[in-house]
Design a protein around this nucleic acid. Sequence first.
DNA 1: ATATCCTGGACATTACCTATCCAGAATTTC
DNA 2: GAAATTCTGGATAGGTAATGTCCAGGATAT
Lengths: 163, 163
Amino acid sequence: MKLNAGVEWVLHTCLNLGWIEEDTREGASTARLAAFYHLPPAYLGKQLQALVRAGILTSTSGPRGGFRLARRLEDISVLDVVTAIEGRTNAFECTQILHDGPGANPATDYRTVCAVSQTMSRADLAWRRELASETLADIRDRVLTFSPGAPRQTRAWFENTRA
Amino acid sequence: MKLNAGVEWVLHTCLNLGWIEEDTREGASTARLAAFYHLPPAYLGKQLQALVRAGILTSTSGPRGGFRLARRLEDISVLDVVTAIEGRTNAFECTQILHDGPGANPATDYRTVCAVSQTMSRADLAWRRELASETLADIRDRVLTFSPGAPRQTRAWFENTRA
DNA sequence: ATATCCTGGACATTACCTATCCAGAATTTC
DNA sequence: GAAATTCTGGATAGGTAATGTCCAGGATAT
């Protein structure tokens, strides 16, 4: 039960894009976004492509191209981002082993009926609900409280490495 | 982000043990517990050993030996079982990529400070809290409501395959 | 003594995550 | 129009963890 490392990467990357766009009204390329944290560029690119497919980012090809936020941080929940990378699979996947036990009804879908499955589903639901209740803007605001200089520092880095 | 399959196996197995012990005051061997759902015996054995180490089951060697519940279903939370199999690792593991970004403080533990990490930790906490709030007795009672014949049917199977 | 059964470790297999590379298309710049 | 930049999608390789098997050893009941 471990999330893809990409979840951490893209959450931070989206926050960075928020600060960049506030300033320059431009996006950033995979290469520079990856260099910011010394992440493998090609692999981060895969994750960003997933965000584009999920409608969280937009991309443009060519020089001066790159990725931008498709909407405001207020309108992107953490769950949106997690789901884009991780898919909709639950941590607990009911394999319906009751079907292999005595007295099983072949027509029954134990994913909805089985009491064990129900309990585990509720836990997964609680996890998702928690992530759905927080937006990237909420996270950004908490970053600002803890380290107010973060936006300026991030913008400066992207400007200085522009060439 | 997927739980070990063993979680499903041992949750159902613990419920079966509950019904068996109500009746015969005896445990059941790995071989028979596995046969009940056509699970690989040796691998289920590994999972049951983990439950013994966690203090959820007790085991006895030799003929008529096997596994028994170490305490009542009322006193075993679903989280206890999940943790025994899965360990205490969270779904989201903060790799502190902020340490690799500009302006990082090498002395800072970003697992507690980073706003992204905090959000993801809260979600994991909500998941655990949900699992901790439910006991195996709760699940058993819901099974009884849905299929009152389950205990009798399970006991019958274990008695008939006794030899 | 013998048969049963758990224990722990070693080992093989499989699946998935991580990561790279490349050809192709889109876009800007000159 | 040519060249450089950048995203896109697919193919592929490597690594790690989950899955599954096997066996020697110890414990226990008959």
